[in-house]
Each structure stands twice: as C-alpha cells, then as structure tokens.
Nucleic acid binder design. Structure first.
Length: 342
DNA sequence: TAAATTTGACCGCT
DNA sequence: AGCGGTCAAATTTA
C-alpha cells in the first residue's frame, strides 16, 4: 500500500479537516513517521557506504534516500508535529529536497473546513512536487482562489468522468514556493473507470523505453498532463529536455548497477515502492500518462518481460519523479501575488 | 476540428 | 452572507 494511503488510514484523512484523527492515532502516526525517518537516515548511511566510489550510483542513492527522508518530514509537518522534530536540511540538497526550507502556509492552513458531505472528504492527500503524475488521467474543470491562502486551488476530475461515469476527482493546491514548488493533492472518490494506477513493480526498463520514445521537449504525453497554461510548456521545453536527458542518464546508471547486482537487490527498493515517499510518483505511472489512458498501456509490461535480468522495483521509478518540476498552470485572473501561475 | 483549459457565474452548504 | 465546488461558454492548442 502506498504511504499516502497508510497515512489516510491512520486518521490523516478522517474527520472533517482531513488531517487529524484522534489524539492517540495522531501520536501513533507521528511516532511511526519519525521512526521511518530515522530508519531512512540509517539506510542512507549504509547505502552510501556500500556505494562509495561508484559515482552517479552513489549520488542517485543519496538523492533518493534524501527524498524519502524529506517525504517523512512532509508527512510529519502535515500531521502537525513540532517543527523541532524536523532535521536540518542536508548541506548539499538537490532541488526537490529544498522544499521544506521555504516558509509557506502549512497544509492544514490550506485546508479550509470542508462541508460535511461524503464527497467532500478526501480519501487521500499527499504533498508532491509533481501533482499531475499519479497514474491517472485528469481533466481540469475549475480553479478557485481560496480565501486566506496564497495560491489558488485547481479542480480535476477523471478523464473518464463521462465515458465511464468515473467519479474520482482531485484538488491540487500549491503549498510552497520552493524550487520546485510543492503541492498539496487531495483525492476524492474512487476510480470506477477501471484504469487502476500501476503496480509499483512495473518496469523501470519500460519507463526508460517510454522516455526514449517520447521524443523531444514537452513531447508526447507530457502534454497530456501538462497541456494547460497556454505557453508554459514551450517556456519549459528546453529545461524539460535537459532534465529528461539528465534523468535518463541517471536511470541508465541505476539500471546498469541493478543489472550488475540483480542477485542481491538493495532494500532501498522496498522503501520507496512500499514506503513513505509521499512525493513519489513512479515513472511508469508517468509513462502511462504520457501516451494513453492508464488502462491501455500493456506495452510497458511486455517490455518489462523482455528484460528479465532487471530487478524491477520502485527505485528507478522514483528517480524519475524529478524529471518534471511540475508547476501548476494557474491562471492570472486572480490578482495573486508573484507565483508560478502568473 | 476535436479536445482540453480558462474563467465567470451559479448553486449548495455552513 | 460568505465560501467552496461545479457548470458551461469562451478560448486556446495541437
């Protein structure tokens, strides 16, 4: 089960605010998240020791585990744990790891009291730097400036809302102006469109193939998820292409290392695929978003089957989460202060 | 031209 | 009455 789901089931979503459950549950969640963060730090030490001198593989492992730790910190902040519990930011952070350092309204502040209707209670919520890529296709149907918040809230519903009467919706609201910015994503209702999100075991290799096939900047299905916002795609095209190349390179490195070590897969895999990275959206989900509705991409699984030497898991997938510094395409009609939506 | 986004207006809830 | 969520016409994009 994904971390965000666990968080939700642990009381994070229940009871109106969507953040707090009972005091006992709340404390238990904070305790577990704190423990997870500590264990991640230990794992990072071990991984760096094991990968010492292996260049990019070492850097990649370092980055991933920093991100896992950051995800724990995000969750802890969501749960309202004292800021003192958060560790100081690592001295050499990669961009996505800087998120917690910028002052911003807490997710709790962003969540206005919700109406007491069944549909208005989020099933899950998460904080991510790439709010678009969660394995489903969404269509934006509204945007609203929420009082007392700095950023507008965007409303999405499943693209199969009409075709398959899918009632799933999500709301995305920026909650920090970092680089990349961070977004609070809330999910409502289950998908009934039979386009379930990808299994975490889906193929890294297939993802790489998709990346190669996706062509140039902003090409392919990226536009599906990021189409909105007028010229934003064009403005980011060069940067995205650069990021894509860097991350394909990283992925290739990881693939190579894992192919070499596939007899003894590192447990870091379990941490990301089954674990706590609230920010993580795996690349196969992204690949699915690129090309077609989620249900129509068996090609990727087939590709995975063609590369039996690979131990497929979430590690390489989560790397690709940082492929896109997905800023939302907020309109400019809200008279908002400086922000990425302008 | 179809598909997706934008955005003002409307509606229901508190 | 105010606020948040949704609708739907207009607009934009590929």
């Amino acid at each position: 089960m994904q971390a965000q789901s666990r968080l939700a089931m642990s009381g994070g979503v229940g009871g109106g605010s969507g953040i707090s459950g009972s005091d006992d549950e709340h404390e238990a969640v904070i305790r577990e998240l704190t423990r997870g963060r500590q264990l991640t730090a230990r794992l990072r030490d071990e991984a760096l020791r094991a990968l010492r001198g292996q260049g990019q593989a070492e850097a990649t492992a370092d980055f991933i585990l920093q991100e896992v730790a950051r995800a724990f910190t995000v969750c802890l902040n969501i749960m309202g744990s004292p800021p003192a519990r958060a560790p100081p930011p690592p001295p050499q952070e990669m961009p996505a790891a800087r998120l917690m350092t910028s002052p911003s309204p807490t997710p709790t502040e962003l969540l206005a009291p919700r109406r007491n209707r069944e549909d208005s209670i989020p099933r899950e919520h998460t904080v991510t730097t790439s709010p678009h890529y969660d394995g489903y296709q969404w269509r934006k149907y509204g945007q609203k400036r929420i009082t007392k918040t700095q950023y507008p809230r965007c409303y999405y519903r499943c693209s199969f809302h009409r075709d398959r009467n899918c009632r799933a919706t999500k709301q995305v609201q920026q909650c920090s102006a970092g680089d990349p910015p961070q977004y609070l994503v809330m999910y409502f209702n289950d998908h009934t469109c039979d386009t379930a999100a990808w299994e975490p075991e889906a193929s890294v290799a297939a993802a790489a193939m998709h990346l190669d096939m996706s062509g140039g900047a902003g090409g392919g299905g990226l536009a599906v998820a990021r189409r909105g916002g007028g010229g934003m795609l064009d403005e980011r095209g060069v940067q995205e292409e650069h990021e894509r190349q860097v991350l394909v390179s990283s992925l290739t490195c990881v693939l190579g290392a894992r192919q070499f070590h596939h007899q003894s897969p590192p447990d870091a895999a379990g941490i990301t695929s089954g674990g706590p990275s609230a920010a993580a959206v795996n690349v196969t989900q992204r690949a699915r978003t690129r090309d077609a509705p989620a249900a129509s991409a068996p090609v990727v699984d087939d590709a995975a089957a063609e590369m039996p030497g690979l131990d497929v898991d979430g590690v390489g997938l989560d790397i690709m989460d940082y492929d896109v510094t997905g800023e939302l395409c907020f309109g400019d009609s809200y008279g908002l202060p400086d922000g990425p939506y302008q």
